[in-house]
Design a protein around this nucleic acid. Structure first.
Length: 275
DNA sequence: AAAGCAAACAACCGCACGCAG
DNA sequence: ACTGCGTGCGGTTGTTTGCTT
């Protein structure tokens, strides 16, 4: 038996939303909050599918949306993030406050794709179109692309390969706000591949302890120490090694790492694939 | 002014996933 | 373990808008 349809299609409106429908939806959500989209249309007196209501609210009616043109900085950030994440529009949107995945997706398809093509860059692979060594990588495939930083030590690598590795390192520095060289153990042992399916694993407790110890040894009282669990909004979780009050042994101050540039849990961590 | 075309935007659709029963 | 529900995501399609001829 198939699953039941999300709504009774025969009795729902489709197409563009009217001002009246918008007002009804806004006032209902203001009064009752988001959630239970399936029952919302009936409760709000709307002849719409719940999914349609959700989409309308998330993409156009939410009060925290930033409307208007994308800035040059936003353009470049989207390009960077897309090169790292592929068509994970919701993840990219999480890095751009006030922008929605749908908006970014449309903007990508109408503006940025052409912009990259004009630069001679393949928007799917982010590599030079004329470079024959470019590996095929479609954003729609399920293939996993890995960035192997360890390969940077390979003396046999050609100049293009080294450039690409440096680009990738630079990209990770830019996006994640850290230097690859900050993880000496990983350098020694060969840095594990960065899985572009974004299966991000928190750094080991050992790394965090090492940072703490270094701070304590240095005698600095306000040296920033990163807690990755907190950076993901997982305060007080079992993976949180800093404590929720932001202090470590009453000596150093933990700076909740600006993971993907989202301070203070702006990003709903559930949208990150933590595997 | 009108037709044709392309770009931009809004919305829909199907699928996948997490969760509760 | 299985099933159904609710929700979110990404791809695609439909509509509107603006430009060119």
């Amino acid at each position: 038996m198939g699953r039941s349809p999300c709504c009774e299609k025969a009795h729902t409106n489709k197409g563009a939303w009217t001002k009246e429908e918008d007002d009804r939806l806004i006032s209902y959500i203001r009064a009752h909050g988001e959630g239970c989209w399936r029952s919302l249309p009936k409760a709000a007196g709307l002849l719409r599918c719940g999914k349609s209501c959700r989409l309308r609210w998330i993409n156009y009616l939410r009060p925290d949306l930033k409307r208007g043109n994308f800035t040059e900085e936003e353009d470049e950030l989207i390009i960077k993030l897309h090169s790292l994440l592929g068509n994970k529009w919701s993840l990219i949107a999480g890095r751009l406050p006030g922008r929605t995945d749908n908006e970014i997706k449309n903007y990508w398809n109408t503006h940025i794709r052409r912009k990259l093509l004009n630069r001679g860059i393949d928007p799917a692979t982010h590599r030079n179109i004329n470079d024959p060594s470019t590996p095929e990588r479609s954003a729609n495939t399920n293939t996993t692309t890995t960035i192997s930083f360890g390969a940077s030590n390979n003396n046999n690598m050609n100049a293009t390969g080294r450039d690409q590795v440096e680009d990738q390192k630079s990209l990770v520095r830019g996006i994640f706000g850290c230097k690859v060289e900050q993880f000496p153990l990983q350098e020694q042992q060969g840095i594990p591949d960065l899985n572009l399916e974004l299966k991000i694993s928190p750094p080991s407790c050992y790394q965090f302890q090492q940072q703490q110890e270094a701070v304590l040894k240095s005698g600095r009282t306000h040296s920033p120490v990163v807690c990755f669990a907190c950076s993901l909004g997982l305060k007080n979780s079992k993976d949180c090694s800093c404590g929720s009050n932001g202090s470590v042994n009453n000596k150093s101050v933990v700076v909740h790492h600006d993971f993907l540039g989202l301070k203070g849990g702006v990003l709903d961590y559930r949208s990150l694939e933590m595997k």
